[in-house]
């Protein structure tokens, strides 16, 4: 029997998801033995034309990481969708927008201005900007369109499964691959990581008081962080309550709070709203003014509550409408 064909592709991403696949280490050889990887630009032959020539649906599964920022990325995502039985959104950027989607808090114009005009190192007297089509010495050179908005994968194509994390852990990747190979798949749309909050498996849960109350929100710069005590109980914002489990609490092990890269659990759609609700219940203050004062300690609400989920947030949605005008 022919081995199932698998594609791995990256869009607006850092390569960390691909590196996480490399981190399967010895296991990667088992994966290679079980499947036929037909596309993996970071590691193997691109064969772009070969993919176009393939019959629709002939790729068993495509793992696509990264957000959608350019026309080229959208085009290849659509191509892979057509050719694939299953598409898995791989990692935070693909699932939720990820760090690149923080750009939805600004605009394409501002990004170009900052990169090519206002940067203190740029010397650009002729005000040159990268162009989709540039003519240089009579040669035509093309670049893909840079979209106004950063999209998550399911904004541009239908997605079957989601593998969360920035990046997903090698364990979760191995589990997902095994489930696909054995045909033991959950219902379509499932997020392939335990559906419970990080707090439920956090070692510091024991030191989390029954009723956490926060009278002052602190920044990690201002205090010595206790290496054993619950971050929220220390007054530091930890996204654990609003974040899906599955990372092995790696940031907590580094004595730093969770920043939410695994996204929300099934029961809530908007990670930031969930965190705000959690905080609302534990902020201490006798009246509105007192609570307002505590909230002032949250210096970057959008970047804190939606660091990885901007494209999936209500905020991100508003942004898209603005850009489409």
């Amino acid at each position: 029997m022919a081995k199932p064909k698998v594609a791995l592709y990256w869009c607006a991403s850092c390569g960390g998801c691909d590196e996480a696949v490399v981190d399967l280490a010895e296991n990667i050889l088992d994966v290679v033995a079980a499947v036929d990887i037909i596309l993996w630009p970071i590691a193997m032959d691109f064969k772009y034309k070969d993919i176009e020539a393939m019959e629709d649906g002939s790729i068993a599964v495509s793992f696509i990481n990264g957000a959608i920022r350019t026309g080229e990325q959208k085009h290849i995502a659509e191509l892979l969708r057509r050719k694939s039985g299953l598409v898995v959104a791989f990692g935070s950027c693909s699932s939720l927008g990820g760090i690149p989607a923080l750009a939805n808090l600004t605009s394409r114009r501002k990004i170009f201005d900052r990169s090519y005009h206002n940067s203190p190192t740029v010397v650009n007297p002729e005000n040159i900007e990268p162009k989709m089509k540039a003519s240089v010495d009579g040669h035509v050179l093309k670049l893909p369109e840079f979209f106004k908005t950063v999209y998550k994968l399911n904004d541009v194509i239908d997605v079957d499964y989601y593998l969360p994390g920035c990046p997903p852990t090698p364990e979760l990747i191995a589990n997902a691959v095994t489930a696909i190979l054995e045909g033991k798949l959950p219902p379509k749309g499932a997020i392939l990581s335990p559906d419970k909050s990080l707090c439920t498996s956090c070692d510091r849960n024991e030191t989390k008081p029954e009723d956490v109350t926060i009278s002052k929100i602190k920044r990690v710069i201002d205090i010595e962080v206790d290496p054993e005590k619950c971050f929220l109980a220390q007054g530091i914002i930890c996204m654990g309550p609003a974040t899906r489990d599955g990372c092995g609490q790696s940031c907590i092990n580094g004595n730093m709070p969770c920043t939410g890269c695994f996204g929300p659990t099934d029961s809530c759609r908007d990670q930031g709203a969930k965190m705000i609700a959690t905080l609302g219940a534990i902020l201490e203050g006798d009246d509105e003014n007192a609570v307002d004062k505590v909230i002032e300690g949250i210096v970057d609400p959008a970047g804190t509550f939606y660091r990885y989920a901007m494209s999936a947030s209500l905020l991100g949605g508003a942004r898209k409408e603005v850009e489409n005008e």
Partner: peptide, 12 residues
């Protein structure tokens, strides 16, 4: 053929 704009979106 890629740009993500860190220099701009790290503002704030």
């Amino acid at each position: 053929p890629e740009l993500r704009g860190f220099e701009q979106f790290c503002i704030d």
